[in-house]
Design a binder for these strands. Sequence first.
RNA 1: GGCCCCAUCGUCUAACGGCUAGGACAGCAGGUUUUCAUCCUGCAAAUCGGAGUUCGAUUCUCCGUGGGGUCACCA
Length: 447
Amino acid sequence: MIVTRIPPSPTGHLHIGTARTALFNYLLAKQNGGKMLFRSEDTDKARSTKEFEQEIIDGLHWLGLTWDNEGEIVRQSERVSIYKEYLLKLIDDGNAYISKEESKTVLGTMVEVIRLKNPNKKITFNDLVRGDITFDTTELGDVVIARNIDDALYHFTVVVDDYLMGVTHVMRGEDHISNTPRQILIQEALGIERPIYAHLPLILASDRSKMSKRHGAVALKEYREMGYTKEAIINFLALLGWNPGTDRELFTLPELIENFSVDHIHKNGAVFDIKKFNWFNREYLKKYSDDEFIKYLALEEVELPYCFNPNSEEFSRVLPLIKERVHTRKEAIDEIKAGEYDFAFITPTDYETDLLKWKNDDSVKTALPRLKQALTLLENADFSSMENIKSALWLYAEEVGKGELLWPLRVALSGKERSPDPFTIAFVIGRVETLKRIKNACDKIGE
RNA sequence: GGCCCCAUCGUCUAACGGCUAGGACAGCAGGUUUUCAUCCUGCAAAUCGGAGUUCGAUUCUCCGUGGGGUCACCA
């Protein structure tokens, strides 16, 4: 049975790259009826925190990624006696030794670190995505595997834990390739079996270097806060370094389990393209019902323009407009705050009269009779749907010229240079308000 | 710099020796009901270079170039 693992180090926020590594390990395990295990690599006591650990677990769970050892968190900080046992064994066997030397961290003090006796040999391992990789371990020297007998270091704990937890497949970022030979050295010294390795291509920033804080957002949390949905994140991440072998791009998590395959993992690093990410997010937003979208927007957490009323009739009618226009929640909130949708709630009055002038007209006065005609047509029109409002005006619009009527009408209703079309706005605000705004516009021109 | 990995449109990628190198995102142009958005249609856009192997190379080999990763008593 395939056993994979996701061993984050709780020394920072859940990195987007860690999320992808978790996803791929999850996919590999689930596809083969295997297991994925979680382990908290908190051997760095100075930098590890329980808060980060919790955030990482929550983030992974939010994405829908679960593991098969849920409930009992395996923490390396709680396994010192286990490591000690194996460290002792190594020393007893003569494969490691205690070395008295000057501390590298606290200068001037002497410490007793434990070093692995390096056999100075060539190591070749097979990588599932890259094939055979060979290193000469001579250049590694005698690797330090523990600060002291009670304080084992990463390379050692990883090897011991993967062995003890029955991990069969180690799938991780490409940045670990050069760590692999020293870990194999430790395995060989311990006399334990070598797992199967697979190194994933890195997620790159737009300058093609490893994605890091200086490039902007790297924490899953940040993308979550901007309103990227878990479906979009999973889908986008899956396609960064992997492809289904077909033109298909939209996949849910269960569909990924079905279609995933290690031999379609790419070797090259993949640039994290926010534009494509936005596209994915919109694709999933489109699938939301109005209720789901309202929940998603969570407007109760936001300070809205004073006129903006999310409990109103008008709001339920602008909602589809918002959904149609934005890629993320952040975009939606920004637009709402900028007053893009205020036309639904408040009568526009402070716009320039000249804005009502259609580009082909010489004077704004020309628009007056058209607006008046629209007024009479709308007085008895059926406002129950956008289509009906449109048909009430359409014949006249074609007769007098579409832009000639529709432009001043739209401005009268929105007060803006850019907005949804006049039929949509009329439907959103209703008959009374529509007539009122057109009259206002007529008055403006009349003055 | 040593070691290791990698190399197809701007970006994500398809084509596992053989159609005009395909798709998607982004871009641009046009259209659908006036503006913004949506939607539709179209356009532009790539095999890093050089040698080989082969009837034939994006694909295989070598060299070069370029990019990246890693060189901790971090993980």
